[in-house]
Design a binder for these strands. Structure first.
Lengths: 127, 127
DNA sequence: CGTCAATGTTGACACACATCGATATGCGGC
DNA sequence: GCCGCATATCGATGTGTGTCAACATTGACG
């Protein structure tokens, strides 16, 4: 397949090769950066970071919009927009069940991000 | 003192308490998000992510601007700007040695980010 | 002390983005 | 078939941000 983790992690037209890059091991390439940055951009927003955390920590790693809305002072379209961004970044999946739409966290995405900051021996902290 | 990692991680007026939040364990609070988001914003840019990776992977985890410039098609002021953003986010330290300025990666920051994506038992991937 | 090289600061500009209100779509119940 | 609810899309708007050219600052070296 390719690397170690992630198959079909990043959504549109990006090779799965460029993932799980240990950021401190060697300089990340331009292509790798281009692949990872959209994911980082997606969570580099208070509302979206909280949304992702809410979905992740929710029962079964999934939550419907109606579960999420009450946690915010934002309008429903805004939440919907943020969820779309998270989805397009490959961080959450969408699943429609009747009237409700459930968003499901993608563990591979979290693993990919965690892998980014995986420390080499030299960079380990907190002895 | 407080948590487990990080003392003086985030730079200006933010309690070190709000750090190392396992994103998938429980919903991140608004305050915690506000603390972490600036770091994520800082690396949610191709140039800055590459800069951080270059510094991190450079010998000794540090590099001067003159080492970094040749890797980019961007102007020197732009690189300087990006480095400032990384510095203000608490991801790199500045150290002036003669004419040159060295930027040093902060392992605590990387650990904090890694901690964000640390998976609970339930969300663990890749066996 | 004057000049040069390395880096940072400022102001300006174009573009992206977060947010909202209004509206559309799609499903369930009557 | 119609109405109501849950969610998405659209258009508009204000704010943020990446980038540069021009200038300022600081240290090295004659």
């Amino acid at each position: 397949m390719s690397n170690s983790c992630s198959d079909g992690l990043v959504p549109p037209g990006a090779d799965p090769l460029t993932c799980c890059v240990p950021l401190s091991r060697e300089p990340i390439t331009v292509d790798q950066a281009a692949t990872v940055v959209p994911m980082l951009k997606a969570i580099a927003d208070p509302a979206r970071l909280r949304l992702l955390s809410l979905v992740l920590s929710h029962e079964g790693g999934e939550a419907c919009v109606c579960d999420l809305l009450p946690h915010f002072d934002l309008s429903q379209p805004t939440i919907s927009h943020h969820l779309k961004v998270l989805h397009e970044a490959g961080l959450v999946d969408r699943e429609k069940r009747g009237t409700w739409v459930y968003y499901i966290a993608r563990p591979e995405a979290m693993a990919a991000l965690a892998g980014l900051f995986a420390a080499d021996a030299r960079t380990t902290v907190d002895a």
